[in-house]
Design a protein around this nucleic acid. Structure first.
Lengths: 161, 161
DNA sequence: GAAAAGGTACTCGGATAAGACATGTCCGAGTCCCTAAGG
DNA sequence: CCTTAGGGACTCGGACATGTCTTATCCGAGTACCTTTTC
């Protein structure tokens, strides 16, 4: 059970975008260079974020990506789902149906106690992630490390050609 | 982020073992045939459970697997960790270290706000799974479907050669 | 008849292939900006 | 000098290789039981 590494990239990149005060787009190349990541692959992740409506893309010179919504309206869960997909980690394949007394018409995804337990746990996980918005994370960082906001802004600006 | 299918197999199989009142071992072949699963592959999962001390194995004819502890002392988390491994789904690779102002000596796994958020969510997930023992699951099923316990016992007994 | 040695069949256990998914890369479609020519 | 058409460069977007992990299978090590032989 390994989460895609792109989730980490996407979260940090979204946080960086949240620090760009003017809504000017930042190219995938600049965003990738900031963390020394493969530009083309980060671009791929950003496309997923764009499809999910978290960032909006601008083509052409001076183009790039910007946050499509306010940081307070973007939860960490939104980003995770955008990259990983909406499916749960635990997928009940309803093996009870193949058991001796299994019946074809029953929906074992909802009746099976094990499936319920796993789903309940994932729900708790999602609840935690949905309770943290990008604005919350940004505020946490700014209160602990006040310099970071300015450093990031400058770092991204200097990398723009 | 997909959890191994073996987790579902292992949980259902452990639950079946919890219904074998006498501690007689049940072979992997019988356990696999009960759900029409590939025997050799289920055997592999059972080996992982044995390494984790959840089941104990007996070699030779009339051998097989039995629960190594009381069902009340086996949590769902124990089984999941035995199959999936102890590592978290989200692995912080500390990309902040490669950022412009990143420092080599800092442990970003503990300071990074994003890493903390993800870890907190996984902790909530683990807490849910650790709160459910195999005895709890068994009791839930028995209260809702009183016939299942006897059916499972008979089903496993009949498959023994 | 009882005991012991040997063989046999059945079990787990780890080493070994095949497939699926995440990772990484490349080139094309679209867009804006700059340049330059013409009015 | 102003307008406008054209070229060029830069961006996203999706299609195409590669690596790693899950899935699946196979054969060997070990053990209990049964058979057979001997006392």
């Amino acid at each position: 059970m390994k989460m895609s590494e792109g989730v980490e990239w996407a979260l940090h990149t979204c946080l960086n975008l949240a620090w760009v005060e003017d809504g000017s787009p930042v190219s995938a190349t600049v965003l990738a260079d900031y963390f020394r990541l493969p530009p083309a692959y980060l671009n791929k992740q950003l496309q997923a974020l764009a499809r999910a409506g978290i960032v909006s893309s601008v083509s052409g010179p001076r183009g790039g990506f910007r946050l499509a919504r306010e940081p307070g309206d973007i939860t960490v869960l939104d980003v995770v789902v955008a990259i990983e997909g909406p499916q749960d980690a635990f997928r009940c394949t309803e093996i009870l149906r193949d058991a001796p007394h299994g019946e074809a018409g029953v929906d074992y995804r909802s009746t099976c106690a094990i499936s319920q337990t796993m789903r309940k746990a994932e729900l708790a996980w999602r609840r935690e992630l949905a309770g943290q918005t990008l604005a919350d994370v940004r505020a946490t960082v700014e209160s602990r490390f006040p310099l970071v906001a300015g450093q990031t802004r400058d770092g991204l600006r200097n990398r723009r050609t």
